[in-house]
Design a protein around this nucleic acid. Structure first.
Lengths: 230, 230
DNA sequence: TCATGGTATATTGTATACCAACACCGGGAG
DNA sequence: CTCCCGGTGTTGGTATACAATATACCATGA
């Protein structure tokens, strides 16, 4: 059968509104910058942004309103819009909540995920056999993050994933590298393997406990070693 | 002594901007209405709201942008803004996350709260001695909600509290009354007492497990009995 | 009668002008 | 030298005009 002369299947690439694009651009800019590098507050000038983006202030303001709701910026009436700096206490709370979310994700995985899915977790660490971890410390850092995101995703609970992602967004500006440092990497990979084993064994309570404790250990580490906050 | 000619005491309560007040008003309106009463979508008309509130569209739009970010409304470009209706699956996910959060709260309570604080939980149920529960079913429903909020608050973790509150906001429109029905009230109060005991005993793991299971039981109940969603 | 295309209208998206409030700075008085 | 006060500029807040587009309705022709 001949193919009909249909013009073309054009899904019409997303016509994002200016508000949407401005929101995305600002969010990206904020999360990718190191907020804690300079001591002084970082201010967003509506009119300046308006010129930079080449749009009017209206979409800028709506984007800022959303960023405010998201907790990324603080609007000081008649003074300016400022990027919020999380306090150490707030970071610790975020990690605590993260521990709760990821722990629940682990539970769900033991109940619903397939063996094949769980098996994919092992492959993530295939390149870190033996003592390769120290050598590929940067690469491991990325893998580390992807591992935790994989756990969340595998839970099949979109909300869980979304909320954890949101928390992670706020922590991106803090250099995660310094958090999972060399001396922690070895311990980390052991934890991960134990977690995978618990998942494979469908040991719900144990898997949750391991995941929770692993994340709470991070909190303790931050509590003790991170000092460039506040 | 004559009263000085002070202009007025005015605590200047309305230091809130129009955007802020519009946001609050819309949020209150949305959460207090029963979204699922009618089958058709509920639309918010900017111009209508503009007239109702007596302000221009700008603050309305900024408030709507925030509500969108919060997940309460959906903006369909050039078509209108609509109050989002949560699906049953989304509700179940919210309850699941809630279980994780409140479980973690219970953990924290066993580690940091004072005996006196924990004791206050008992007083909440003082008026429901014996079989009073069935008689005061409505009142118990409120107490039930306050109990869970008290747990979150007592955890001393503001973020935990805030995120749970946010989840609760989305569920308010669903009649919680029907969720904690007569036949569940008895079981509920038993669970609560067990939870309090575990907290008092500082039994971290057990308290968490009881709290988590109590909430997951709710999820199972919703799964089975709630059918006015979707 | 039905399909098709144009058009009117309604609704949000965007730009811009103006306003009110606050910060900042400089000068004068003590 | 310090402190107060007022002018002035900057900034977010608000209103409104205009543009773009989705939708419904209607006319027209097969």
């Amino acid at each position: 059968m001949a193919v009909a002369a249909r013009p073309v299947i054009r899904p019409i690439e997303d016509n994002f509104s200016l508000k949407e694009r401005t929101y995305g651009a600002l969010k990206e800019a904020i999360t990718s910058m190191n907020i804690y590098a300079s001591a002084e507050e970082i201010r967003l000038d509506e009119r300046q942004l308006s010129k930079d983006f080449g749009v009017s202030r209206t979409p800028i303001r709506e984007a800022i309103a959303r960023l405010q709701q998201e907790g990324l910026v603080h609007i000081a009436p008649r003074k300016g819009v400022f990027v919020v700096r999380k306090t150490k206490a707030e970071i610790l709370q975020m990690i605590t909540v993260w521990a709760a979310l990821e722990g629940m994700a682990a539970r769900l995985i033991t109940e619903t995920a397939s063996d094949a899915e769980i098996a994919t977790l092992r492959t993530m660490f295939a390149t870190f056999e033996g003592d390769q971890v120290q050598a590929k410390i940067d690469e491991y850092s990325d893998t580390n993050i992807r591992f935790h995101q994989a756990i969340l995703k595998m839970s099949q609970c979109d909300l869980l994933c979304e909320m954890a992602e949101h928390l992670f967004l706020h922590m991106r500006s803090i250099r995660m590298r310094t958090i999972s440092e060399r001396d922690r990497a070895d311990r980390s990979i052991i934890d991960h393997m134990n977690i995978i084993e618990a998942l494979e064994a469908r040991n719900t309570d144990f898997a949750e406990r391991l995941v929770r404790q692993h994340t709470l250990d991070l909190a303790a580490h931050v509590e003790e070693n991170v000092d460039y906050l506040d």
